[in-house]
Design a protein around this nucleic acid. Structure first.
Lengths: 195, 195
DNA sequence: TGCACCACTTGCACTGAGTGCAAGATACTG
DNA sequence: CAGTATCTTGCACTCAGTGCAAGTGGTGCA
């Protein structure tokens, strides 16, 4: 799993980190939409073309490696006890997301960008669509539904609903300026759904 | 509500309809992404610039007037009896969406485009985000939650979950080539959530 | 009837994201 | 050391979308 991180790989990570840091600075100052990739690249000191070697799009700067994160959530979900209910297991899997490498201020800035920029929100939602398919099989089993080749719509809806609760919790946390407890909001949202 | 449809307004509708029809033709032949706006406009016989007087973006061709549809769903929701539960009322409101002006084939083509094109899916999800805020206040009341200035996260999560069930139903309908009954899938999805 | 006002249409020029290609530099491998 | 894969860059390109300004033709009002 943890392959030897080659020099190249470490350099790549470092470069990505530096670009991200500089970009976040500019985003915080001028807003996401108003910041062009040219501004970012010239601030970092790389060519415009090289930027696209590290990130597929401007939104990727803010969203991180969506595929990898989705995979890790899936792994966390599948690591839960077999007899755990779907809600409990998904909740636990989501809680592993907590980004330890970011200060609360950085997280709030990120949340603000998510909130302000339609294109970022859109990509974020697309990311969740992919998570939906990633998590659906395990959830399908936990729901007691028979396995199928294409995921059962009930499992898909379940994951989407859970993600909706998750997003609502993060949103409430952001709106309160970091005061609200996202876990509590999540639980309340789930309870509201099931009542 | 039903203002006198002026000549201008009727012309505008006709133009929009014609552009949409031509575009759908091209989309069905070449795919959504592969079809450029230039191709559409030259097929219709209008200038590229005029296209943007009728539609704000290429995706709008496929999504229809999102804002108007959202408003009509909200109206349908608020027209439900006051004492009806949130789930029942939302379900009924969603059922009013059924597009009577499209043949099943056209609907399947539309669904295929939604399925194939990431950018369309993204806008579709953004549209649902706006619906979320539109429908949340009424749902909040039905859930017995006190009214607030910014919507309660529980109400937002509820609407998002309902929309997720709705999308899952449409998706299942599409995947089955129109065989599945979306209403049944929707109900099953909701039941799965609440179990 | 005539005049003023509107919206529609169009061309032009521009920004900004994202891609394909090819060439030079740089680092890894045998 | 030679060969190869990767990184970086520039260049030229496509495509979506916007701002502006000029022309056109229908609409309404005096």
């Amino acid at each position: 799993m943890a392959d030897t991180p080659t020099l190249r790989e470490r350099a790549r990570r470092a470069a990505r980190a530096e670009i991200t840091a500089t970009a976040m600075q500019l985003f915080a100052e001028n807003g996401f939409e108003a910041t062009t990739i040219d501004q970012i690249t010239s601030a970092v000191g790389i060519s415009r073309r090289s930027f696209f070697h590290y990130f597929g799009s401007k939104e990727d700067l803010v969203l991180g490696d969506t595929e990898a994160l989705g995979e890790s959530v899936r792994a966390a979900l599948e690591a839960r006890p077999d007899d755990e209910s779907a809600w409990t297991a998904v909740r636990a899997a989501f809680l592993t997301i907590r980004p330890a490498d970011k200060t609360p201020e950085e997280q709030l800035t990120l949340a603000r960008i998510h909130h302000e920029s339609p294109s970022v929100r859109a990509r974020h939602l697309e990311k969740h669509l992919r998570w939906q398919e990633l998590l659906a099989p395990d959830v399908q089993r936990r729901l007691g539904l028979p396995p199928t080749t294409t995921p059962d719509p009930r499992a898909l809806a379940f994951v989407a609903a859970a993600l909706a609760c998750f997003d609502a919790a993060v949103d409430a946390w952001y709106r309160s300026g970091g005061a609200e407890d996202p876990e509590r909001v999540f639980d309340e949202a789930v309870e509201t759904l099931r009542r």
